[in-house]
Design a protein around this nucleic acid. Sequence first.
DNA 1: TTGAAAGCGCTAACAT
DNA 2: ATGTTAGCGCTTTCAA
Lengths: 353, 353
Amino acid sequence: MSDDKKVIPITEDIEVPRRPLTLKDVSVASGVSEMTVSRVLRNRGDVSDATREKVVRAAKDLGYVPNKIAGALASSRVNLVAVIIPSLSNMVFPEVLTGISEVLDDSPLQAVVGVTNYLPEKEENVLFDMLSWRPSGVIIAGLEHSDASRAMLASAGIPVVEIMDTDGDPIDAVVGISHRRAGRMMAKQIVRYGYENIGFLGTKMPLDHRARKRFEGFTEALAKEGIEIMDQEFYDGGSSLVKGRELTEKILKRSPDLDFLYYSNDMIGAGGLMYLRDQGVDVPGQIGLAGFNGVRLLDGLPQKLATMDAERISIGREAARIIAGRTDGSITERGQRIELSPKIQLGETLKRH
Amino acid sequence: MSDDKKVIPITEDIEVPRRPLTLKDVSVASGVSEMTVSRVLRNRGDVSDATREKVVRAAKDLGYVPNKIAGALASSRVNLVAVIIPSLSNMVFPEVLTGISEVLDDSPLQAVVGVTNYLPEKEENVLFDMLSWRPSGVIIAGLEHSDASRAMLASAGIPVVEIMDTDGDPIDAVVGISHRRAGRMMAKQIVRYGYENIGFLGTKMPLDHRARKRFEGFTEALAKEGIEIMDQEFYDGGSSLVKGRELTEKILKRSPDLDFLYYSNDMIGAGGLMYLRDQGVDVPGQIGLAGFNGVRLLDGLPQKLATMDAERISIGREAARIIAGRTDGSITERGQRIELSPKIQLGETLKRH
DNA sequence: TTGAAAGCGCTAACAT
DNA sequence: ATGTTAGCGCTTTCAA
């Protein structure tokens, strides 16, 4: 009779009533108890090869994807590491992530990234959100957090590693460099090389604590040599070559006697370099330059910018090692402190003067 | 007897037996049922102001952080969007993420990022991992995936948006540009401006499908004009200014007659520009240059590189809108297709010749 | 080596 | 406006 069913209406609505598969589906398909299926899928306990085989087949044939939500709830184990950073457009942070992933790839852990845009309030929200997934650990940039954030971190009962910066009071572990020291080191080098009229260019720093600390260390070390910063110029928003050009033009119009410019990052430093070369200024003869971060991407500029390696990848790696070690029990202490040593790269814009 | 317990060893092991707080703790502390506490914490249903007040106080005082694992399991709702991209060090992808976050920030959804390093196998793993968290949707770069990946995506029962590229068969929705067309557009422009001896420089492309498609579109359009690529040069690994310099030197040593170089991205294009200027080559008089991506970061170079805006932020935004709309029910159709139009930016390295 | 039962912490659906 | 009950899909624990 109804062989008119050969007219199949072609529509998007042919709702194949397929709910997500569960362990039970695999159990039924393989004729093995859910428990044993679970064992096979997690490589736990003793399972005969025959059974294992059956289960693996069934799971693959069905296209079963385990539900980690349920697994995590049952085992109260969540193999996630919350990584909280201020920005992704800064190059610096993706590199830290690279270091983190490198290490976590050899562990059952998985990084989950949250971005704060340098806003403490956003940090608080992101942190709350991530903690509500009950991660195995937290890696968070910086040592400055709101009271609420600190409270959450302190009482989460999981390893916390604050990264990038070591100047301050960590909640638990800390891996980074001392930005104060970095600023001092660069100041000393500049003075040692004979520059005297020194300018600073960087972000407006109320929220960029690391830039602020570098600036403080820098001016402090200069002060010890009896030198005061001759001029400074601050900017908002992201860093780019254009921004570096603009700042440099501005500060030099105002203070033409400057013989050194210290930039708070390589991108604006490179922009400054471009500008000065366009103007026919002799770098580093007439004006010396230095940036910060050691961004290798920019190595191909006409002159290599003096800078300081911020050890980003190592920082990521060490932080991840601490989390991984504490999670698998191979590390039991807490509160570790790893201060890495940034190194000055003289490049071709910081020479004896 | 055993009142020698007054000697308390000072150790890190004084385990404050503090398990993570649960709804029940808040319920007890506030004298309200768990259900009502849940209602308050999620702003659901009617709760008297008095009760709400009590609950909020208690939760805050205790420092309660809800357990999303349990919530997600109970409600079978997970407010995560899996975003799968090949790399974080390419600038391009963080920008896509920016567009995505911008839109998701106005929704209950949260992006979770997975990185594949351009490896199909890793993509498969990352995808499997993310799907096992039962996200509300997937945004994934590219249209080329392993069969297993496609199967997982197709049967996940959630919205899937493939991004960046529109040249191919999408699984569900797609948002991007046609890289073939982009390559053709640039080829036509170059020919129209009178360049004839054209070289191509880019990544080895077995896995970078978008670069390959641009290359194919490029050569195809040239062919239509009766022009064949004079030389080409491919490289492995990340893009940097140095790499651009090296490639450019190499290709020009081999084919000194080239009068145009088309680079598969702006970074190596900028490196090429640096090299040519160092060599005293007149750009674009002697040799014209173009890159791809429209990376604003590099705008401050001595000359603005010709390029093509890949619409990254818009792509992120549109993709996120589709996921958000389908998740909240405001969009019911599936399989949407959004092809954005890349625009050539002539800059100062592609001029009438 | 395998299975059965009892939750994990929360929310949907239904009372009241 | 508030409470009760029954799971969500897994793993833990214990038994066989």
